[in-house]
Design a protein around this nucleic acid. Structure first.
Lengths: 194, 194
DNA sequence: CGCGTGGCTAAGCGCTTGCTTAGTGGTAAG
DNA sequence: CTTACCACTAAGCAAGCGCTTAGCCACGCG
């Protein structure tokens, strides 16, 4: 065991996450990734097929995690108000706490190849569907009131996703502060009765 | 006059906007830009200093335009409710209609050099300040009610910016449809009295 | 001990990159 | 006709790119 720390493969993945988030997929070289993981350029290819494959792995795991988050929020209650609260809390906090990975998930889709992109799009479609279901259930139960449930659902996700763009670790707000306030905003956006 | 159409310089800028928006700054080559403008690779350097300088020019003009938009919205009325309506309408519609340029403005900041980035940050700070002023004025006038005006103002801008990410020309909604609905959402987010 | 195995690297291949150099051809003034 | 100028290009340079090849070295097993 030469270097340090855990598994070299995951060290490379972590290095790729840092690099892709900071400089974008095309702005990152395989040498950047290797040296951030403390290895030689060739080491990347011992553990991963290609640079694009690393991106795909990161994107896939990120989307899986996000979908799971949303589904757990929906499953946490039968009340649309509580569902929305749970989903928005988890979604916003995740995009703050995990802004590094979330930037890749949301802004590097164009760098994926065709098949990989098609697969990732499925996750995104599923996430949107879950949020749409929550909003339409609330409207049907007459606890939400919005003139365009589909656009409102998209706006809710959009608001959460964009946290990954503006969030800074050195900022004044902790992920939980943002999650709290975003819950309030979400309930207002859907016109939740209070 | 060999090629066609207007001014070669602006043709190159337009080509750069298309390319940067589609593939990102680092994913675009100077040859991409030149050939999209119907010229040889060297022609880029007849009219522009460097690839980064093209990005700077696009980013600067985009930010100037956005700031102007926000300021016009604020100036359109003395009533915070009307101000917010005007700003959100213009802001959302702009990020839909001009999503190509807006993507560069919002997602390619990291590709700017240090001085250029510093200058661009000033525009962004000013835009945020204008929005914050509208929200705090509304709270002071007791027509808005929000527990965290600063975060709410950021969320309003965030919501508008992210339109540039998800908007598609082939989609079901026109920029005006989005602008209308986003006005409603904005007023709800700030807790505007109805 | 010899032998295989598996994580890792030194070196480098073929290609593309941003950008430069040395012009070319068309236009217009003198 | 000469001269100067301007928009543009053909060709190419040095550097950097993603990725491969060949092989090293520490290890476990007989």
């Amino acid at each position: 065991m030469p270097g340090a720390q855990p598994n070299a493969r995951t060290r490379l993945v972590d290095a790729a996450i840092e690099s892709f988030a900071a400089k974008g997929f095309h702005g990152t070289t395989t040498r950047d990734i290797a040296s951030a993981a403390g290895m030689s350029p060739a080491a990347v290819y011992v553990h991963h097929k290609s640079k694009e494959d690393l991106l795909y792995l990161i994107s896939k795991e990120g989307h899986e995690r996000t979908l799971r988050l949303v589904e757990e929020g929906v499953a946490s209650s039968a009340d649309p108000v509580e569902q929305l609260r749970a989903v928005m809390r988890a979604f916003a906090a995740h995009h703050a706490r995990g802004h590094t990975g979330a930037r890749i998930v949301n802004y590097e889709l164009a760098a994926l190849n065709e098949e990989h992109l098609a697969e990732i799009r499925e996750y995104r479609r599923a996430i949107e569907q879950r949020m749409r279901d929550v909003v339409t259930a609330g409207v049907a139960a007459d606890v939400f009131a919005t003139s365009n449930p589909r656009m409102t659902a998209l706006a809710l996700l959009s608001l959460g996703i964009d946290v990954a763009r503006w969030y800074r670790d050195e900022g004044d707000w902790a992920p939980e502060d943002i999650a709290d306030h975003y819950c309030e905003l979400a309930l207002r956006m859907v016109g939740a009765a209070q």
